[in-house]
C-alpha cells in the first residue's frame, strides 16, 4: 500500500507530472532501446560493417 501511495503521490497526482513522466519516459526508452539493439546488432555483425573496416582507409588517406 505504501508503494502504491508513493507512486500515486509522485506521478499520478498532478497531470503535468504524469504527462511529462510519459514524455520523458518515452524519450529515454527510445534512446535506450535503440542503443541496446544497435550494440547487439554490431556485435552480431562484428567485422562486416563499414564502421568496422573504416579505420583502415581513413588512416591510409591521412598518411
Amino acid at each position: 500500500m505504501a508503494f502504491s501511495t508513493t507512486l500515486y503521490n509522485t506521478f499520478f497526482r498532478r497531470n503535468s507530472v504524469f504527462v511529462s513522466t510519459i514524455f520523458v519516459g518515452a524519450f529515454t526508452f527510445g534512446i535506450g532501446f535503440d542503443t541496446a539493439v544497435t550494440s547487439f546488432y554490431d556485435k552480431w555483425n562484428k567485422g562486416k560493417q563499414w564502421k568496422d573496416i573504416r579505420h583502415k582507409y581513413v588512416e591510409a588517406a591521412e598518411e
Partner: peptide
C-alpha cells in the same frame, strides 16, 4: 552469403 541470415549485414569489405 554473409548477408543471408535474418540479422546479417553485408560484408562491406566485400562491397568495396
Amino acid at each position: 552469403w554473409p548477408q543471408d541470415g535474418l540479422l546479417d549485414t553485408f560484408d562491406h569489405a566485400s562491397i568495396r
